[in-house]
Structure formats: C-alpha cells, structure tokens
Design a protein around this nucleic acid. Sequence first.
DNA 1: GTCAGTGCAAACGGTTTGCATGTTT
DNA 2: AAACATGCAAACCGTTTGCACTGAC
Lengths: 146, 146
Amino acid sequence: MTTNASRGDEVLDSLRRHAKRITEPKRAVVQVLVDARDHLTADEITQRAQLLRGDVSPSTVYRILEELEDLALVVHSHMGHAAAVYHLTGQNHGHVTCASCHVTFEVPSDAFNRLANELMSSLGFELDRHHVALSGICAACRAEID
Amino acid sequence: MTTNASRGDEVLDSLRRHAKRITEPKRAVVQVLVDARDHLTADEITQRAQLLRGDVSPSTVYRILEELEDLALVVHSHMGHAAAVYHLTGQNHGHVTCASCHVTFEVPSDAFNRLANELMSSLGFELDRHHVALSGICAACRAEID
DNA sequence: GTCAGTGCAAACGGTTTGCATGTTT
DNA sequence: AAACATGCAAACCGTTTGCACTGAC
C-alpha cells in the first residue's frame, strides 16, 4: 500500500526532479494535502499550513498550488459558485455537488463513460471528468424539501 | 412557432403577473436575452443593454437577472473559471466547455441520462443537468495539440 | 403619492501580481 | 553568490450591497 508519508515524499521528489526548491511552505502545503480527507479550498489549505508552520501567506499557497498543478501533482475543481477546491492527483473521478447543502460526492469515472463516448463521437469533444463539478440536489436535501 | 417578439412578451407578462414593474432596463435586458444566439455573461448583457438604452448599470443588470431567475425565466451556468453566463429558460440541456479555447457546446439532455440514473440509484442524488458545465478539450484544440 | 426599481460608488470574496526581502541551492 | 521563493500589500475581476433618487403604478 501507499502510505501517507511516502505519498508526500513522492510529491517532494517530483519537485526535486523538476529543479524546484523544497521550502518550508511547500512542505507544509504538501503535508496538508496528504493529510486531507476531503477536498480543500485554498483558504483551508492556508489555515492548516499555518498551524503546521506559522506564517504561510495565501499568495504563497496559491503559487505552490499552481506549481503542483503544473507538475500534475494536484488538481483543482470548481464547485458551483464557491471557491475552487484542491487535492492531490489520484483516481480519475468526477465531482457532484449539492446545490443546497454543498456536500460533495466523488463519482467513479465509469459513470461518465457513456456521456464521454457520446461527446467524443458527436462533437469530437474529449471530456475532462474531473475539472468541473456537476450540480444537483442530494438525497438528504430532497428529503427535507418533501 | 414561437417568435422572438412573443417570447419577450411572455417574459414581460410573467413579470406583470408577479407584480413586478416593467422598466426600461428590464425591457432592454429581456430584449438582449431574446436576441442572444449564445449564452451571455452579465457584462455582455450590460453592454448590449446599454446599446439599446444607454445608462444601464451593471448592478441593475445583476438585480434584473436575479429577479428573472427567481421567476424561472432565466438560468445561469458556471463555465470553468470565468464569469457565469445567463440565458432564457429553454430546453433542458447540459453544457460542455473547452478548457483551451472556451467554446461552449450544448448537449442534449439524453446524453446525461445514464449518469443521472446512476447518481440517483447509487447516491439518491438528483442531477441538475444544466447548472454547471463539464470541461474538456474540443476537437479543434485537440487537432492543434497533435 | 407610494414604493419598487435604479444608478452610483463603495464593499466584497477569491485570486493574482509587483516588489523588496529572505532562503535554498 | 545567484537564483528562486516568500510575505506583504495592493490590484484585480466578478458580483453584491447601501443609499439617495427616480419613475412605474
């Protein structure tokens, strides 16, 4: 299995291989991402990084996240109106967000397959299953409405 | 068939029925939406409304769009990073945006059906096919990359 | 005449950027 | 020592809001 520690090391190694410097803020951000159970906004990442390290500025976090994205170590997605969320590259899954309570679900990639195939054959359009979240109403909120 | 003129009148009638006042800015915004071939950002709507009428402020456009959305006459969607786009309520379709050139395609609702069914049965999640756009790479941009 | 609707300007939240300073290599 | 990364503050963009005024009813 891949432990959290080794996943973090992989990320740092990748930075080294690409001649990027390993700094305290980067260590902190990577740590936060590795430890994160769910997807985090840039602001949440900043706050957690500050707990680990004190004095990590939001702009630095944005710059680090951008660097990690350029190296394909991190991806971000847009959930409806709100701030973008970031997480380490992992399985290829789609996102679905509840417009009412903002809970997010990950959906296995297969569920998008038919749609992806259809887009490819009809438009020649290659779907990125991950980048933007679909919107809807989750079971709990539908129950409340009824 | 439904002409552009009558579609605009329908919208204005709906406003009257809901005891909303019919103002010059509202007429202009409705006209812009009726005439629009594609989806427009609030800024584009503002600019076009100003051509028709001079002196329509952005904030007023936002307020009008919000009112029209409350009456289910208009919907908006988020296309990746950029500003939201608005258009009159019409057929229930999904949106797909090219991450490279930002062209937007509308996808007939059926293409989402399997995904929608799967979300409902596995999570009890009711998909809103319209609200958030999926992302990917369009045929033209893929050709360029190759 | 009343009140909803407007324009303006200021505030807002998320994100980006310029610059002087600090740190990794 | 040199290059790069950082923190800060200011700028930015899309959107929202407070307010005094205007115009639809």
